[in-house]
Each structure stands twice: as structure tokens, then as C-alpha cells.
């Protein structure tokens, strides 16, 4: 038995939107603490770790821990239809479907068939990050959108004073400077830089709309970790870098 209700669908909508382009299908664990989804994209470039605490829901009931195999792309297209309606989610284990109900003046019910997901063991690197910077997510998302105008990749760089988000392309360059004072926290043990593909980042920043803050863990030519957090939810990404060449 699993049942949940969200008066405001936003948090679910945006977090699924942020991951469904990268990850096609995943096993979502349901425990008494909430929902958790951890998966890697097919190219093994990005890792997603989504946690929606029980408290994020207005109602949350589960008898015993479950893993639901979900086609995230399907789920995303369904959630896109939610508007601002309240969402009810209920497992119909007899028919092996997840019932997703949007309730307003009418009640709309979608059946999402559950799928078999292979339990591939995730090989996750254990990294030491020399820099950790926490900023308002809007700064990050706007910079990524700026970078998209000129290139398909972006460089994240920090020194003792600033975080730089910059991109170079045939049509020009862009650089966004975020001074230390604008950051919520700024711990930099040494300057470092890494380059990343915007193809992934532009999906990840969709989480900005629901997060209060994003913490960026950066090193020299190693993956970047980005934790988008709000009171009852956390969406973490680990993204492998691109080689800088010229």
C-alpha cells in the first residue's frame, strides 16, 4: 500500500522535469521517510539523487518499503498536465499501475504502468572537493542560460574571491562573475576549474525553480556536484567534466 497527496504539485513536477531528460527509467524507493531516486544516465556522465521527504507531502502513507519501476519520461508528460491541481498518487498493485489523480473542479486520473527496472549497481566515485560554494539557484540558472547563447559547454572556476561561470564559442564569449559576498557560503581551499557540457546542465537547472539554494562542489577537472535543496527536498547531481582542448 502506498498513497500520497500533494496540495501543490510544483515540487514533484519540477524535480521530475529536471531528471527525466537524462534518465529514462528508474527504480523509485518508497519508505516511511519519503521517496528516493538514484540513477545514472545511459552515457554514465551524470548521476541523479533525488530525495523527497515525507514532510514535502501533505499526506504520505506506506506500509512497507517498495521500489516502483517508473518510466520517467511518461511520468513527466503526465505531470506536465497537472497545472496547479492537487495531486494524489496511489499504488494499484493488483494492476501494477500507479494511479495519478489531479483534483480540482474535476478529477482526472492517469494510470501509469509500472515497469521492470534492472538493478544495475551504481559505481559512484568518491571525490574530495577542494571548493564548496553555496549560492541562490537563480544565479546559477541564469548563468547557464547565458552560456547557452554562445556555446555547448561551460567552465566553472573559483579563486579566493569569486566564482566564475564562463563560456567560449565561435560567436563570442560570456563570463559571469559571482563575488564571494553574494554567496551564502564560500569555502575555497584552492582555485580550481572544470568544464562541463551544457546539454546536461540545462536540464539540471530546472531544479532551480523549487530550490532555496544550490551548493556547488568543484575541483580541478573532476566531476561537479550540485545539491539543490529546499526544506523537504534535495536534488543532487554529479556531472563528469569535459576535457578542455585547444
Amino acid at each position: 500500500m502506498f498513497k500520497a497527496r500533494l496540495a501543490d504539485p510544483k515540487i514533484l513536477k519540477y524535480s521530475i522535469d529536471a531528471v527525466s531528460n537524462m534518465i529514462d527509467e528508474a527504480g523509485v524507493s518508497v519508505t516511511k521517510d519519503g521517496l528516493r531516486l538514484k540513477a545514472m544516465d545511459p552515457a554514465h556522465v551524470a548521476l541523479v539523487d533525488l530525495e523527497l521527504k515525507k514532510e514535502a507531502f501533505d499526506e504520505f502513507e506506506v506500509e512497507e518499503p517498495l521500489v516502483l519501476g517508473i518510466d520517467l519520461e511518461r511520468l513527466n508528460t503526465i505531470l506536465k498536465r497537472a497545472g496547479t491541481d492537487q495531486i494524489l498518487i496511489q499504488l494499484d498493485s493488483e494492476n501494477n499501475v500507479l494511479k495519478i489523480r489531479f483534483k480540482n473542479s474535476s478529477t482526472r486520473t492517469f494510470d501509469l504502468p509500472l515497469i521492470e527496472v534492472s538493478e544495475e549497481e551504481l559505481k559512484v566515485p568518491n571525490l574530495d572537493f577542494p571548493s564548496q560554494i553555496e549560492i541562490p539557484p537563480k544565479i546559477l540558472s541564469e548563468s547557464i542560460k547565458d552560456a547557452e547563447i554562445v556555446s555547448d559547454h561551460v567552465t566553472l572556476m573559483v579563486d579566493e574571491e569569486n566564482l566564475f561561470i564562463s563560456a567560449k564559442g565561435d560567436l563570442g564569449n560570456v563570463e559571469v562573475k559571482v563575488p564571494k559576498d553574494e554567496a551564502k557560503s564560500f569555502e575555497v581551499s584552492k582555485s580550481c576549474r572544470s568544464m562541463f557540457s551544457l546539454e546536461y546542465l540545462k536540464d539540471m537547472i530546472k531544479a532551480s525553480d523549487i530550490a532555496d539554494s544550490v551548493k556547488i562542489y568543484l575541483g580541478d577537472n573532476i566531476p561537479v556536484r550540485m545539491d539543490f535543496t529546499t526544506e523537504n527536498a534535495r536534488l543532487s547531481f554529479l556531472l563528469a567534466p569535459r576535457i578542455e582542448s585547444e
Binding site: H44, K123, V124, P125, L238, P241
Partner: peptide, 17 residues
């Protein structure tokens, strides 16, 4: 070719284990 490549330039998470 490396200069132009998308796939060869993109690292994968396994490479950092």
C-alpha cells in the same frame, strides 16, 4: 578530430573511481 569531438571530450563518472 579530438578538437571537434563531443563524445571523446566528455569524461564519464567511472573514470573517477
Amino acid at each position: 578530430y579530438l578538437k571537434k569531438s563531443k563524445m571523446l571530450k566528455q569524461k564519464r563518472l567511472e573514470e573517477f573511481i
